[in-house]
Design a protein around this nucleic acid. Structure first.
Lengths: 192, 192
DNA sequence: CCCATGTGAGACATTCTTGTCTCATTATGG
DNA sequence: CCATAATGAGACAAGAATGTCTCACATGGG
């Protein structure tokens, strides 16, 4: 069926391999290519036919993470309604990708190089715009910069993903823990 | 002066080496033993005379990080005054160790093994107790568990340390950014 | 049935890091 | 000045992970 240099149904397998690798590397970020292959139920040779090397695999995972974040952002409709509710929706939609995000967040390989994926900047811009809108609408305080709020969203997401893996936080509490801390902080609100 | 198998002033050098390694590994967590040695201004041979291997070096850095956190916790006097101010003091005192903390936070080697340093549990207990006190005093909300608040403190500290290294957050704003977000969140307070 | 394609298993060289060793040089104290 | 200790430089082997290759097997369509 395929008259080119690539296998017919590689695209389907490729996605499965990518998901398996994400699940494994989330738990053990130092996993070997051999372990990644085994986790996907394929041989190392086949894994290399999908991804030229470990670097290519990590880059593909980065692209997947960016895509999932952008999809989550789309589903969250960040321009709609109050910024507060938009953040809550965003955190809820981003939870399935939190593990992958946490892995990428700790993968220094992606940040040390001078050439980093533009997707992150696109994401930063969109999320930053959400926080900025909240500030302009008077919902969010203005002494915390949108850049920092964006960074905090990533950080809390990764932290909660790890805490969930360790069992220190229940998975079903993820959206509440992240969103409510990010929005309201630890302080008790005055009942007014 | 030394009649034993160890050099005379190694203790002094050792601390300097440890600090250099912390500073380097904070920026580049995959740095080689050779790079660590060069950063400390010593040869790889001497580095090995201080620390048996990379693992021992990381363990020593872990011990240093724990010690610095405990010292910061002591200086912050977490039992004194309002829990809110105690958290602010803690964040301020912990800033100098934030880079090291961020490195250790991402060093999976320390968490994957079944044997982890008791120091972290001691720290978790003390910080968790601070948040619990705040809850009992009615300062902090009770729908976020002390365990999660502790985790969030670590996560925000690491995130802000990285953001500071990248220049996305000014170092002088570190205490405000971390403490105010952790305490008050992004939402604007009602002026009452 | 035959052939092309995808796959698994394994061998192999390469590279990188580490750990260990020796030896010459330096400085340090008596 | 001398002896000891500490260091730096470099050689060396061991180990791990990677990238590449070959070959045998099976699987599916024509």
């Amino acid at each position: 069926m395929s008259h080119m240099g690539y296998p017919c149904f590689m695209a389907l397998d490729r996605d499965h391999v990518l998901r398996s690798a994400a699940a494994l590397l989330t738990r053990k970020s130092t996993a070997t290519m051999d372990e990644v292959a085994k986790a996907a139920g394929i041989s190392r040779a086949t894994l290399h036919r999908h991804f030229a090397g470990r670097d290519a695999l990590v880059r593909a995972l980065e692209a997947l993470g960016i895509a999932e974040c952008e999809a989550a952002l789309d589903r969250a409709r960040p321009e709609q309604g109050s910024a507060t509710d938009a953040v809550r929706r965003l955190v809820r939609e981003i939870q399935p990708a939190a593990g992958l995000l946490a892995f990428l967040y700790g993968e220094s390989q992606l940040w040390e190089g001078d050439r980093q994926n533009d997707g992150w900047q696109r994401l930063d811009s969109r999320i930053g715009a959400l926080f900025q809108r909240g500030q302009q609408d008077g919902e969010f305080r203005i002494d915390l910069t949108p850049v920092w709020l964006t960074e905090a969203l990533y950080g809390l997401t990764a932290s909660c993903a790890w805490a969930t893996l360790d069992g220190r936080v229940a998975a079903r509490d993820f959206p509440t823990m992240v969103a409510e801390l990010l929005l309201g902080g630890a302080l008790r609100r005055e009942e007014s």
